[in-house]
Nucleic acid binder design. Structure first.
Lengths: 250, 250
DNA sequence: TGTTTTTGAAAGAAAATGATTGATTTTTGG
DNA sequence: CCAAAAATCAATCATTTTCTTTCAAAAACA
């Protein structure tokens, strides 16, 4: 049976019942547990469903066009390591800014700290945060359709209402000379503001982001601690000179 | 049985009865006491219910608010007429404030005007608004779990960033002497701010809201045009004296 | 053919569950 | 009102189930 077929069966069954057990899917598709597990992981990353212990359930919010393509599923494991490490930096009682975007999103399941407050401009994060009973605030602003990030003046003013112990920022590109950059200037502004209002800044950038540049500058390297999975000493060297960097090993 | 299934059963049963005993839940889900206790702890943490000795109860809300799903079922047809009329007031190019809550939510499918901008503090409205390609802004603030409304200082400041041609406010009670009231003072503040920043204010209140009072005052009657489905002249008379009122007939 | 991708099986890790313990709260009966 | 009895509770532990990771075989591809 082809992968897309199986995925369709899974989603259909899920839509029908709300929740499905793994074993039901094994039976319905006559594939092995392993295969179904892989399917579920993939579909979860595409935000088509939510895995739960023993099976899967519909997403609380009906994520329509929100699905992310294959490329998001690629560096998954590395990104998750980064997210996990980042989440471990959060301490009980911290006030956190959590940037919109998938990398920051992945931190949420790994957050162990209690009594924290989280401010975010990522609408996609809300369900996950609330499900964990985390006190959640959002910045307000204009809703950027493609990513469901909040941007614009409203978001800027929203961020300014708070002060953070730590902020976690996702970026598209990190470069020794050009610093942190991201394609959308409006988003860059929000990120910068959050950084300025935070005691500590952590920039989440997997190895594919290093030595890259995009359009809008967020800040210089020295403004944040980079968390990455790049291990090549040669590539890392110039960054180590200019800022602090934490390398997460798999 | 999967965790989300059990949680759903618990919440359904709770919604039905207001309070449930632990043993009822044990029986209804055929799981052990321990499991149900864990479920209750978790759901309490998510602010979906309140644990009490011997079981759980609905969240004690100031002034007895119904959760979103409960409200939606009541007075559906009348409310929809009100929503439809309200939506027809929106003109091309208007800047609108759309209050959180089900009545305002029902306006969205009826909105015909183009090129409008909508600001809202209701997270539940977003999908619907974006689906119609409406430029949408949100106020920011703290997320009130039960209703998904944004409240608190963040919401207040968020509202203040904008000016509106018209605002549409949902209220819980309308009274000739006590004006517009709603159970949550935090929500009342947000509503009042929106009204003050708007050229015109429309208050959506079906007949069940008239001659009622709840805890937190939003504003005096004269501050807004009431849209209602009450047709009894006797009931309407005192309101007509004090403010403008539009009666929607079914 | 060699290479890549998909698949299923297996072992150890992690999570959920149900039973048990003793502490705490509520109810009962004087 | 008090104290004993009953019920409920949180905490812990062993068991079961499910999960992740890894690896090798099978299938698809060039």
């Amino acid at each position: 049976m082809l992968t897309p077929e199986r995925h369709q069966i899974i989603l259909d069954l899920l839509k029908d019942r709300g929740v499905v057990k793994l074993h039901e899917l094994v039976e319905a598709t006559s594939s092995s547990e392993s295969t179904i597990r892989r399917d579920l992981s993939q579909l979860e990353n595409e935000k088509k469903l939510k895995r739960v212990h023993g099976g899967a359930s519909l997403l609380a919010q009906k994520g329509e066009e929100l699905s992310i393509t294959e490329k998001a599923a690629k560096n998954l494991k590395e990104k998750d390591k980064i997210a996990q490490y980042a989440a471990s930096l959060i301490r009980d009682g911290d006030c956190i800014y959590l940037d919109a975007g998938t990398t920051a999103f992945q931190m949420i399941p790994h957050i162990k700290a209690k009594e924290i407050k989280v401010v975010t401009n990522g609408l996609t994060h809300l369900e996950e945060l609330l499900e964990r009973g985390i006190d959640t605030y959002i910045t307000g602003g204009y809703i950027k359709q493609k990513t469901r990030a909040l941007i614009g003046k409203g978001a800027l003013e929203g961020v300014k209402q708070y002060r953070f112990d730590k902020c976690f920022i996702g970026v598209n590109a990190i470069h020794t000379e050009y610093g942190f950059t991201t394609p959308d200037p409006e988003e860059a502004m929000v990120k910068l503001n959050a950084m300025n209002l935070s005691q500590e800044t952590f920039v989440l950038g997997d190895r594919t982001k290093l030595n890259e540049v995009t359009f809008a500058k967020i800040a210089d390297l020295k403004e944040g601690t980079i968390i990455t999975d790049e291990t090549d000493e040669e590539i890392l060297a110039p960054y180590i000179e200019k800022t602090t960097i934490k390398v997460v090993t798999t």
